[in-house]
Simulated scan of single mutants.
Amino acid sequence: MTSEDTGFLYPFIDAEETDAAALLSDLAASARAKAVESAALRRRSLDECGPVLAAAAAEIARRFAAGGRMFTFGNGGSSTDAATLAGLFAHPPEHPPLPAWSLTADQAILTALGNDVGFELVFARQLIARGDGGDIAVAVSTSGSSADLTVALREARRQGMYTVGFAGYDGGEFADSPDVDACLVVRSQSVHRIQESQALLGHRLWSLVHSHLGRPDAVSEGQP
């Protein structure tokens, strides 16, 4: 296993800097540059993903209205983003809740499946047990190629669920998969920037779904 070179992220860490004022100046400049980069990527991602977001929101709203449920899942930091998205739908600010769950929320189920049947099946097996053809499956990833997510999306497709994949880089396997109905790609090489933009795309998806469900006041809350 090789260590990742972080010099491009924090060039001042390895520098032999003894001037505290200069170090603080470097830190401030780095923070400003990252904020500018993040804001630009979020705007670009919203523009590029706009048509896919609109189509996905319409179908998700239709399924919610018909009694469908949403299941979200991801690995590592993306698992927390998936949980945040599920929580936004299930416990929205000043709006009626919608049925949404994160498949990483139950440690007992997650670890039992990982130990007993293999980690690649931790989400697919939950969808087998809990899912239905009218539901929605949302996979959140930076690579778009994690095996446990692609297997789960395949199971969701088999059941007839509507599938959404959040991905970074070039979209990975999500981008060309017949198991992904709506692929939202943040085109960046930085995991940090990808996850920041994915959070905004998730919030925009939520606001558009509420708009389709006759709750237009949620749209203003989803503006960048």
Results as ranks from 00 to 15, higher is better:
F166S: 01
F71V: 01
E17H: 09
R42E: 13
S143F: 07
G144A: 02
A112L: 07
R157N: 02
V191W: 00
L27S: 14
L98W: 08
A29M: 05
G7Y: 00
S188P: 10
L213G: 12
A15P: 15
S177P: 04
K34V: 04
V191H: 08
A108K: 04
V140H: 02
R158K: 05
T142S: 15
R69A: 05
T150E: 01
D106H: 07
L103W: 02
A218I: 01
F123I: 01
T18A: 11
D26T: 11
R154M: 06
Q107C: 06
S30F: 09
G74P: 13
Q189A: 15
P99A: 13
A20K: 11
A83R: 14
A100R: 08
H203R: 15
A137R: 09
G131L: 01
T150H: 01
L27F: 07
G172L: 10
E155I: 02
R44S: 10
S177R: 02
G134N: 04
P92D: 06
V185A: 02
E17N: 12
G171I: 06
D148L: 09
W101H: 11
F73R: 12
R193M: 04
L53W: 03
W206N: 03
V180D: 07
L53A: 15
Q198V: 00
S197M: 01
A39L: 03
S220G: 12
T84L: 00
A156L: 01
A22I: 06
D217C: 01
N115D: 09
A129R: 12
R63Q: 02
F12R: 06
A57H: 03
R32E: 11
S45F: 02
G68I: 03
S102F: 00
E16Q: 11
A21R: 13
A40Q: 14
A124D: 12
G222S: 08
G7W: 01
E221P: 11
L9G: 04
R125W: 08
D81N: 12
V122E: 04
I136F: 01
H91T: 05
G87M: 03
L88M: 09
L208G: 10
V138T: 13
H210V: 06
